[in-house]
Simulated scan of single mutants.
Amino acid sequence: MARRSFDTPCRIAIEQSEAHFHAHVELAGDIEIGPGDRVRVHGEPVQVRFGETIEFQRTATVTRAGPLRRGWTRLAAYFDLSELYEVSFNPGSLR
């Protein structure tokens, strides 16, 4: 049941403009992240001005979820997804 953690390099891309507003983290080596896993990127906070795009390298710690947390996360995600079933994208009222 113990957690397994390891450090890995990562690339961070941040953009704030009229067309895009995003922050992406790509882990080196195409590491798969599963339900319940955690990723923590190390380093100082970054500020991006409007109209600016930056990319830089950092180190991230990946903590693998144990079987109990992985199962709980999958179960919770299933019920969160079912909330979308109550949303209607049709104009007007339902009959």
Rank of each mutant, 00 (worst) to 15 (best):
G29C: 08
S17I: 03
I54W: 00
R69G: 05
P91M: 03
V87F: 00
A77Y: 07
T53E: 12
E55K: 12
E44C: 05
R70V: 06
R70S: 14
H20I: 01
T73P: 00
T63N: 06
P45C: 02
F89K: 04
I14Y: 01
S82F: 03
A76C: 11
D37F: 04
C10A: 02
R4P: 03
C10I: 03
E26R: 13
R64V: 09
N90E: 13
G92K: 00
F21E: 15
G71R: 11
H42R: 12
L84V: 07
G43N: 08
S5L: 10
R11E: 13
I14Q: 00
D7F: 05
G92C: 01
G34E: 15
Q16Y: 10
T8C: 03
G71H: 09
T59S: 08
E86I: 07
Y85E: 14
E55M: 06
V62P: 11
R95V: 00
R3T: 09
G43R: 08
R3S: 12
H42Y: 11
A19I: 10
E44S: 11
G92N: 01
A77L: 10
I33D: 04
Y85W: 12
V46L: 03
V62R: 09
R69W: 04
F50Q: 08
V48F: 03
E83D: 12
L94S: 01
P9I: 03
R38F: 06
F6W: 07
D37G: 04
R4T: 14
D30T: 08
D7E: 12
Y78C: 05
R38K: 15
R58W: 04
A28Y: 07
D80Y: 12
F50E: 15
M1A: 15
P91F: 02
G66R: 05
R3Q: 09
Q57P: 12
G34L: 15
E83P: 02
H42F: 10
S17G: 08
Y85M: 10
V48Y: 00
F6I: 04
W72V: 13
V48L: 02
E15A: 11
V41M: 04
G51R: 05
A76D: 13
D37V: 05
E32P: 05
R70L: 06
G43T: 08
V46I: 11
E55H: 05
R74Q: 14
V46T: 06
E86A: 14
E44M: 13
T59W: 07
E86D: 13
F79A: 00
H24V: 11
R40L: 04
L84A: 12
H20Y: 13
T53R: 14
L81A: 13
R74L: 15
G51P: 02
F6M: 03
E44I: 10
R40F: 04
R69E: 13
G51T: 03
V62E: 06
Q47I: 12
E44P: 08
A65C: 02
P67L: 14
Y85V: 07
D80H: 14
L75K: 05
C10N: 01
E26G: 14
S93P: 00
R64L: 15
R4Q: 14
F50R: 06
R3K: 14
N90C: 09
I54N: 02
H42S: 11
R38Y: 02
L75H: 05
G66E: 11
E15L: 01
L75C: 04
S82D: 07
G71S: 15
